[in-house]
Write a protein that binds this DNA or RNA. Sequence first.
DNA 1: CCATCCGAGGACCACTCGAG
DNA 2: CTCGAGTGGTCCTCGGATGG
Length: 386
Amino acid sequence: MEKAGINSNQVRWARERAGLQLSDLSKALQLAEDKIAAWETGEEQPTFRQAQKLAERLRVPLPYLFLPSPPEENSPIADLRTLRNEARATFSLDFKEVLNDSLQKQNWYREYLQNTGQASPLEFIGKYSVESDVKTVARDIQAVLGLDEELRKSARSKSDFLSKLVQQAEEAGILILISGVVKNNNHRKLTVEEFRGFVLSDAVAPLVFINGNDTEAAKLFTFVHELAHLWVGASGVSNVEVKSAVENDFDQLERFCNQVAAEVLIPAEDFQSIWQSDLSLEENLQRYRHYKVSDLVLLIRARQLRRISSTEFQQAYATRISWYKNRKRSSGGNFKNTLPARNSKLLTSALIAATLEGQTLYRDAARMLNVKVETLKKVADHLEIH
DNA sequence: CCATCCGAGGACCACTCGAG
DNA sequence: CTCGAGTGGTCCTCGGATGG
């Protein structure tokens, strides 16, 4: 069998980068641990086929295994880090892949707009700064989203409310991706401990990514929080701790975006006028049902506006969180709906339009969405029906 | 050593239904 | 009417099994 002739040092580097033990790899590749160890020392060489499988499992392009030394991997993440002053030592491989995947989609979409003469700058990107008035920014976001009494009324449920807002944001030209996994791999779930969302600001093709593994309540809040980022024109990775929204976040930008998000979802004036001090917390929460926001958001608001004590907040918050965590996730669903939701409907339909017009190859389009060509065609049919 | 097949697991939306 | 819970349809990845 012909040997691949890879650089043994690269095997070790890639394995450690992927956070895998020799034993994990041995199991995944169905090969003896000694053999893989020998690849790493250079005593043995894998076959081409084995090298291919190895690269696949280590999530690196095959050529990486032949390089003389590890490649620089700093590109977009370095920028994000400087923009966000939180000292995050390292990002997980999963996160990096999601970020790169999103950047590719954003780049494609920007070029698509340019090629079709639709690339006009969105007026709201970077319209304000963190020094701006919270209320003013919040009103502007509401206006762009068309978030008014009517929209709230038309939402059939809280999750429907979120999807309606997402739809409005996409119509305004913002790509919104909501996914709880890396690419289409259900075995690689994203953790909310690492991030709840991120935003890639851009004048013509802004992109918001929401970690779909989060609770409904948190997703809604993160979504609006990321929009606030765009309104001040800042990219960044966010881990919006719902809890920290009521305390003084050390980061001025994050604090500002949290305040704006709360103001968008439930304006302080409305909140104050509806609240009745002689009612219990639970009774009061019932009075805000038509706002279609979850108890968690209401609790944040109540605390921010000093309607409840810190202890009351902590207590009510804790019971909600455990309830949300215990709730069952139904399995099933239609992949033809899932795919556009994960990759942004705006991007998906633009991509399909581009392939139909012959500007983009089916192969490339399918690769960008991480599906087979056949699947992409089915999704295209599905979307045309509606 | 390797190609191929097959079942398990699980993501997510859209819609319906029934209780309050 | 409102709202949450439940359900159906579809795909991708993984890993074990099989047999060349």
